[in-house]
């Protein structure tokens, strides 16, 4: 009897292992056809250092202001950010008047007026970042058929799969910066040459960090020296990418600092309270065998 059972158990374990091994090696083969890859991105993004990472992370306001400048001068010509209101820019360290002046640089549609006509007016603080195109169809028409995605949530809407076992470690290292890492990698990843034999469709641009294919419709959007910084930060592609990634993280998760701050208090309370309840539990059960 025992031998039958042992046999059964070893058999199932053995089959599991074998299936695992065969599977693993087969996958390894699949992944390595360089010219026609089937899994994207071809290169996983590098893990960068971010001021907002970790349990005590906070946004670097100077960086966010630079990122806003990059967004405004480069990205905003194609990418909308329609969930972000100008009023929230005060969180970047601007005064109410600065925000008002910033908003007034944009035109938004309003109306209808008394004559029933729509009209445009200068944006005010309670308006949201306007879309550069009147609708998705117009956006697609002027961008080679691809609609530039809205940027309000892009830093949370993109994340490259981490794979086993990294995704387990991520729980303990609190890795939650997949979005900014990806944006940074994509923006700095345009200068690679495609592997030999790879066909790049017309009108698209090779980028091995792109999450959904080997190339994307957006050409390299920004390069060294394109945006002038007035705080002395280096005017390099790498710095621009970092700053705009951080800014987009803020746009997607404006309450990150409050969340982590509250979290710290809650954790301290819960741990202390758990200790107290544990002591009570020990007292209650002290003279009871269990």
């Amino acid at each position: 009897m025992k031998t039958i059972l042992t046999g059964l158990a070893t058999l199932s374990l053995g089959v599991m292992l074998a299936v695992g091994l065969v599977g693993g090696s087969a996958l390894a083969e699949e992944a390595h056809s360089a010219a026609e890859p089937t899994h994207f991105p071809m290169i996983k993004p590098q893990q960068e250092k971010w001021s907002f990472a970790g349990p005590f992370g906070t946004y670097d306001k100077g960086q966010l202001q630079r990122g806003l400048k990059v967004y405004k001068e480069v990205c905003a010509s194609c990418h909308a950010m329609k969930l972000v209101a100008f009023r929230s820019l005060e969180e970047l360290g601007y005064s109410e008047d600065q925000v008002k002046a910033f908003a007034a640089e944009y035109e938004v549609q309003d109306g209808p007026n008394a004559d029933g006509e729509m009209f445009t007016r200068k944006a005010i603080a309670t308006d949201y970042f306007p879309s550069p195109f009147p609708n998705d169809e117009a956006a697609a028409a002027s961008n080679n058929g691809a609609v530039p995605p809205d940027f309000s949530l892009i830093a949370k809407a993109r994340g490259v799969e981490r794979g086993f076992p990294t995704f387990i470690f991520d729980i303990f290292t609190q890795y939650a910066e997949g979005g900014p890492d990806y944006i940074h990698a994509l923006l700095t990843g345009y200068d690679h040459t495609p592997p030999e034999g790879m066909q790049i469709p017309e009108g698209t641009h090779y980028n091995p960090y792109f999450i959904a294919g080997k190339s994307l419709a957006m050409p390299k959007p920004i390069d060294d020296g394109q945006v002038t910084y007035d705080d002395g930060a280096p005017q390099t592609l790498d710095q621009y990418s970092r700053d705009v990634s951080a800014f987009l993280m803020w746009a997607a998760e404006p309450h990150l600092e409050a969340r982590k701050r509250t979290g710290f208090r809650v954790m301290i309370f819960l741990i202390l309270f758990a200790g107290m309840v544990y002591l009570v539990k020990r007292r209650v059960w002290a003279n009871v065998a269990h």
Partner: peptide, 10 residues
């Protein structure tokens, strides 16, 4: 004291 303190914390 322990019981009261735990109850208050709760």
């Amino acid at each position: 004291f322990l019981y009261i303190a735990t109850g208050m914390a709760g």
